[in-house]
């Protein structure tokens, strides 16, 4: 019996080996047994307003001034979130469309050229037709940035080659800019 007692510290140490690695706490996107739906990440109760909600609403309301940085951000976000369907040029022939997703209209469609920038922001926010909303993926400011970049894409598809300067023409024909 005394010998067994001597082993006790060892047994206790062994049993605690894993406790620091798997601490009794909730992981992001993990299980939360305390809640009826079993999710650690709970949706805020209905009617609550997050601290940054007014700022988000304000960002959605007002179009930010057009800058080169906004366009660059728009290009990056467009390539991430829009190009799978709309393709990088905006023609609506992205890789997901090639797999059978209904083709969206080309972004230089006259209807979309005439549409105000707010229209694109609203489509990203609410979705349109078979397009799901992307509000959970694209922040309000980024929606405006994408709308700005869509203008650049439209411009790029309707500008005659003759109007480009020599450097841009060389770039277009495969030379270095």
């Amino acid at each position: 019996m005394r010998r067994l007692l001597l082993l006790l510290p060892l047994i206790l140490t062994l049993s605690s080996c894993d406790e620091m690695t798997h601490q009794p706490r909730y992981q992001a996107a993990g299980r939360g047994r305390l809640f009826p739906d079993g999710k650690a990440m709970q949706a805020p109760p209905e009617g609550t307003v997050a601290q940054d909600d007014p700022a988000r609403a304000a960002a959605l309301d007002e179009r930010p001034p057009m800058t080169l940085d906004l366009l660059k951000r728009g290009r990056q976000r467009y390539d991430i979130y829009c190009s799978p369907c709309h393709d990088v040029a905006g023609a609506g022939r992205g890789p997901v469309v090639a797999r059978g997703f209904p083709a969206p209209p080309s972004l230089d469609d006259p209807r979309l050229v005439r549409a105000p920038s707010r229209y694109f922001v609203e489509v990203i926010t609410q979705g349109h037709g078979v397009m799901y909303d992307h509000a959970d993926r694209v922040t309000p400011t980024d929606r405006w940035a994408i709308a700005a970049y869509i203008r650049a894409l439209q411009r790029s598809r309707s500008t005659p080659v003759d109007e480009l300067n020599a450097a841009d023409r060389a770039h277009l024909s495969g030379g270095t800019p």
Binding site: I80, P84, P95, V96, R137
Partner: peptide, 8 residues
């Protein structure tokens, strides 16, 4: 195959 960005 599809080239979807990680951040999507």
């Amino acid at each position: 195959d599809l080239g979807i960005d990680c951040r999507y």
